[in-house]
Design a protein around this nucleic acid. Structure first.
Lengths: 349, 349
DNA sequence: TTGTATGCGTTATCAG
DNA sequence: CTGATAACGCATACAA
């Protein structure tokens, strides 16, 4: 493996010049540049990212914290991989690498050490929980001025950098789609209230109802845990009240499909199903029977957005270094959601 | 942020001793250790992973190359995230971090530069294609003695480190399950022949058939591309020959579900469906209607295995450094597959 | 058992 | 425009 010195000798310049040429920094005579490039290619010289990081005290890594999900199937792997792809794409555009970490089940993640150890220059956090330990860790991170971005979770009263989709509007659209078709008794199967995303969905449901001159019947507000099984369980309730319930809106596709399963298990035929709308537009939605209408969430684009916000921030942060508070408007950014209509929610009588 | 020197001063020892204590290397007097630990905690000292990597010329990163899939939905994101979790778990146990990269669409990945730049100490490759460029890149990697492991793809005639599941046996089990129930005319919807995994499935199908004293009818051997849509297309063929075809084995769940959809679109009722067996046991399998029997693949465990093989290898490789050829037996390792039986393949008449 | 000194491969500052 | 040279923070061989 060729060293930089060999390149310098072959090109007849100093090592410093080699460095400058390869980094495209400072003014350099065109001929010198050419000679260096040539020598470097001829010798197959590849600079060490390790040494470079060390010298610059920049790892060149964008950290991504993922929730602990192995074998859980609780959340669709689908959306994490979409987000990850989006993040990866923007990271590569900016010459950064992705360092992914899985959150350890019990303990609170020590985010600050991640930065102090200099493993990452910035960090994207997926699946954050809104509990005390997590909040404290994030506050410390912000206070120390480390650039980070939270996805799919809102911390009220904080000015964290956050990227999410507009779930209020997504849910509103779903409800409007149902009410527009004349459905009146809509059951809403939400996820746990501890997720801000669940709260937003509820809010959207209420707005949609109001727009149609209706109110959400609180006895039709059910709570699952975003897993398929909890949908199956909710089907018990729904099945007994099928004479009044004419539509079901679920906070994600897995639960919607779970409800369908539960109804089937009880011998209810597809033609007697209520209308269904799910959420996430995961691949399961189009595989469902009947194909499930669902609110599309731009996970890939959310990943891109988070990554690029962070990359800009970490360039800027180099200068001021401490606690660059974001203006509230730009701290939290929402991408639009879109209702995808399939057979499950189309009136057929 | 406290420096190592401050810790040394506070503990009244040299910086070297601080280093030794924190790395648990060399003999140290118990009292000294205590003092150093104490001082280090009091000052909140965190060693720089950057500097450490540099000094050791070891990044501490395990590279993971993922296929380019954003928005493709061609492959189930499911199994990549399972593998990734398995890899991550073992990596963390050994104090390594995960550096994930997405393969760029057109171009061949330059694996060697990844090592030369010292971004990774070892590398796991998912979704490798068996084409000329890729093969050459991998051969170079092996020749330069970089530890790497390929998952879910076999390169015949090479002695690459590979981890896979036993797809020959998995397919055999699937076929046996069908023939044992008396199904005779089994259509096999395979994936592209360019994947070794497809070839193995075909082989297993043939073995299973032979065990039952039958032969695979070549007119019932169909080829899709592992996408749902190709299953829908295959349904066209299957639908026209439904009088003779009594079972369908598909090389993955998505295609199996696609076939089901295709049949449904043609107005064929569930009770008239042939028996179905899919492959991967992805979460889509249990969400299918009827629930899809499927061959379970231990993706998580495969990830763990690949990571631990690599971690051992990269420790060993430090010593001999060049081209440690593996004995053929250990080069390629297969984990067992298991048939999960659900309603789709159970005789109901 | 501990301290001293050197090197790791770049970047960046400062002369020239 | 380019060449020396001083950091960068840690690991480690060698001395003591």
């Amino acid at each position: 493996m060729a060293s930089r010195k060999e390149v310098a000798d072959l090109a007849g310049v100093s090592e410093a010049t080699v460095s400058r040429v390869l980094n495209g920094v400072g003014p350099i005579k065109e001929e010198t540049r050419r000679k260096v490039i040539e020598a470097s290619e001829q010798l197959g010289y590849v600079p060490s990212a390790l040494a470079r990081s060390f010298a610059r005290s920049k790892s060149g890594n964008l950290g991504v914290v993922l929730p602990y999900v192995p074998k859980a199937h609780l959340f669709s792997a689908y959306f994490f991989s979409e987000m990850l792809s989006g993040i990866g794409s923007k990271a590569r555009d900016n010459g950064m690498d992705l360092l992914v970490m899985f959150r350890t089940p019990g303990e609170v993640m020590n985010y600050t050490d991640l930065f102090r150890r200099q493993k990452v220059d910035a960090c994207i956090i997926l699946g954050a929980r809104d509990d005390h330990g997590e909040l404290a860790a994030l506050q410390q991170l912000q206070q120390e001025g480390h650039p980070f971005c939270i996805m799919s979770q809102h911390f009220a009263g904080e000015s964290f950098m956050e990227v999410d989709a507009d779930h209020v509007d997504g849910s509103r659209q779903a409800i409007r789609h149902l009410t527009d078709q004349g459905y009146r008794n809509i059951a809403f199967l939400n996820g746990p209230d501890s997720y801000s995303n669940s709260q937003e969905r509820l809010q959207g449901v209420q707005i949609g109802m109001n727009e149609a001159g209706m109110e959400l019947d609180s006895s039709l507000l059910l709570e699952g845990n975003y897993g398929r099984r909890s949908g199956v369980e909710a089907a018990a309730t729904i099945a007994t009240r099928l004479d009044e319930i004419d539509a079901v809106f679920a906070a994600n596709d897995r639960m919607a499909i779970g409800v369908m399963h539960g109804l089937r298990e009880r011998g209810i035929k597809v033609q007697d199903f209520p209308a269904f709308v799910g959420y996430d537009d995961s691949d399961a939605a189009e595989m469902a029977v009947p194909p499930l209408s669902s609110v599309r969430v731009p996970f890939y684009e959310m990943g891109e957005l988070a990554a690029s916000k962070l990359i800009h921030a970490s360039l800027g942060a180099a200068a001021s270094s401490v606690n660059t508070e974001l203006p509230a408007e730009t701290a939290r950014q929402l991408l639009p959601t879109e209702l995808i209509i399939r057979a499950s929610s189309i009136r057929n009588n």
